[in-house]
Write a protein that binds this DNA or RNA. Structure first.
Lengths: 165, 165
DNA sequence: GGTGAAAATACTACCTG
DNA sequence: CAGGTAGTATTTTCACC
């Protein structure tokens, strides 16, 4: 089980900064400071703290898959034969190392894994399913959902207000 | 149908730059230049061009949902009653405006939509399903998959080599 | 957390192949 | 037309209050 650190308490300043950075992390600290009523160095210190605490996981450029030769996005629901720990772990490692697999989640429910895959052509996807599923004895069944429209691709996490369960 | 611009041809330099920026877009242009054997301004020009062409969609900070009070990630498969265009569009708008809905895709296959949702508690999810699905007459059925492990959350698109179908 | 100065970085011409 | 060079403008970062 991964360590689950107590959620660092973020005050309204932190949340405001996060919501800006999630949209555009090239926003100058001075500009952020003006919007949240803080000096640039104060903003800087808060950002550094959130990075150290793991609130901010990474700073990245988001690339449009369609414009780099991967126009097709596919969701795949995978069901396995056995849920034995070693087999599950092996499957996790297997999926995680495939570049075409953008996201992979281990889930409860009627499936065991959900993958998000991007490929250039359906032929590539077909080849991928061979490698990933047909050659894997532990895969019982998989279902394919081809994305026709990316209605919302935002990765922003709502930071509006803390939730007290 | 959204305009589908011809994929801008990216040379190996562009691809190398992209693969760096997808991991860390705070990397100084000088450092990028050293790694790809280009001067900093050359790198800068290429980045700007890729931004203008939409290859780079955005520059963002990735926030760990668990650390901002949304420890639960859920995939939802939604099936609708009618696929009439207005109803589908209404559903798209409805889903897209909900902050808890991180991602929403309109897909082919045994479901019509796939949503990725983050919430603080299962009670919040339950409340969300009420608002989103039970109050919507056009939703026939939905299936819930709760993420137990985020095996891979990377959003990097493979830019290794162009694919010629 | 604010203020100021210093360092690093990004940006803009301008020139070259 | 794309890249390199050099100078300028911003931005980040650090010491101090």
């Amino acid at each position: 089980m991964p360590p689950m650190p107590a959620p660092p308490d973020l005050d309204p300043f932190d949340r405001a900064i996060l919501s800006i950075l999630q949209k555009d992390n090239t926003t100058p600290q001075r500009a952020i400071g003006e919007r949240v009523n803080l000096s640039a160095p104060a903003v800087q210190r808060r950002i550094k703290r959130m990075q150290e605490r793991g609130v901010i996981r990474a700073n990245v450029a988001l690339v449009d898959p369609a414009r780099v030769g991967h126009p097709i996005t596919i969701f795949v629901e995978v069901e396995v034969e056995s849920e034995r720990a070693e087999l599950i772990d092996a499957a996790k490692r297997g999926f995680a190392t495939v570049p075409e697999v953008q996201q992979c989640y281990y889930v409860t429910g009627e499936a065991d894994f959900i993958l998000v895959v991007t490929v250039a052509t359906m032929a590539d996807y077909e080849a991928l399913t061979r490698r990933l599923f047909f050659e894997n004895n532990n895969v019982k069944r998989f279902r394919t959902f081809v994305a026709m429209d990316r209605v919302k691709v935002g990765l922003e996490v709502p930071v509006g207000a803390p939730h007290l369960p």
